[in-house]
Design a binder for these strands. Structure first.
Lengths: 210, 210
DNA sequence: TCATTATATGAATCATGCGTCATTTTTTGT
DNA sequence: ACAAAAAATGACGCATGATTCATATAATGA
């Protein structure tokens, strides 16, 4: 999609930018936006502050670049799965799988992403915030469609609004990934999507009760 | 439990303290810890900064007091429900109900609480953070026991580890409350605990499929 | 009422950290 | 090898905001 005409200099710039982003990601996810100074980031990345400011207009811009990049990757990966082939069950399983894969590959950024999609975040002046919410919302809609379609196929029972089910599967996968984040060894589960799916799929109550 | 010997002065102090906490809660939950200044809080509470510092050692101490107070109320309310009377289903329903009630009564603090239990929070130097995690963990254990007991009674099927189900019900209720927070009018649901419980209780798949 | 003590006040102090820019270093072209 | 251009550097200026403390105000009680 992109022209491959990159001068040596340009490749170097790209590399430097990545180095800076990597340092910033690590620090932000560890200590939170407000508890990291530009100096600290520059030092960690082994550049002078001035250089940092050559690449990013200001601290907020740097932060946004990080979130935008992650959000891009994330959104794209999820999209591929949701638009891919397979019946409803497969799609949901793939969704859970894909999410886990991305998260495990980007552990440090994930904390930031959680903070953005969940909590009051640390309130980067909205803007990006909104963009992420929107992408997230769109995912939920797409997932809701899968549930809807499954219901129309008689493959699923209408135990709840499709949108609510979408919220549920999203929230459950987050919760389990969170569990894994805190103690990766004690929870080998998220790698197995069925642990999560079963909770939605199999009825808890013994069939035959209220 | 407490002696009722409160001088007029002491009652006034308590009142002032509450005023300050209320102002701080509102501001923190609205703008986030780092985007609120002590001056701002003092002004909103209609006290001089110096007075604020008479009551709270520093900004962090103020913040912790807020979280500690909420966490106390919250924990206690949930505990009452979990230790109360009723069969497993009733208890779970009461849990979901109680959580919703507390949340709806404390909308502004809730955002803070979410930020604490969820995301990387804004990293108030741990300490309290840990305490909250522990309380939360204890709740999950208690809820897991309810599921366990329900399984032993043949009331529930063992569709997943009890602890995982506890994580699930917690995460689902959070998700739905979050939904409600963002658009209270569009989601009258969380008040009805069964919307959430059904998702766990009723199997999604048509009985008779894989 | 007036002295004494307790309390409240907010201007001043001090620390932190963002972002600039004059200077130094490196690269490029002749 | 040298000069001009590009890039990198990091000490410094400045704003913000946390915390202090000398002073003003209010409560107490003789």
């Amino acid at each position: 999609m992109e022209g491959e005409k990159l001068s040596r200099r340009e490749r170097e710039k790209r590399w430097q930018r990545q180095e800076m982003l990597a340092a910033a990601i690590e620090l932000f996810s560890e200590k939170g936006y407000h508890n990291v100074s530009m100096n600290e980031i520059a030092k960690k990345a082994e550049f002078a502050i001035g250089t940092l400011y050559k690449f990013f207009k200001n601290k907020e811009d740097l932060y946004r670049s990080i979130i935008a990049e992650l959000s891009g990757k994330f959104h794209q990966a999820i999209n591929e799965v949701l638009e891919g082939r397979g019946d409803e069950i497969e799609k949901l399983r793939n969704y859970v799988k894909a999410k886990a894969a991305i998260f495990m590959d980007n552990v440090s950024i994930v904390r930031l992403y959680f903070a953005e999609t969940r909590g009051a975040s640390c309130n980067i002046k909205a803007g990006l915030d909104l963009e992420i919410r929107e992408k997230h919302e769109r995912h939920l809609q797409d997932i809701a469609l899968i549930f809807e379609s499954g219901m129309n196929n008689q493959r699923f029972q209408r135990i709840a609004e499709p949108y609510h089910l979408a919220v549920s599967i999203d929230s459950l996968s987050n919760a389990f990934l969170h569990l894994w984040l805190e103690a990766p060894d004690q929870h080998p589960y998220p790698e197995d999507p069925d642990v999560i799916l079963n909770i939605l799929f199999k009825g808890l109550l013994d069939p035959g009760e209220s």
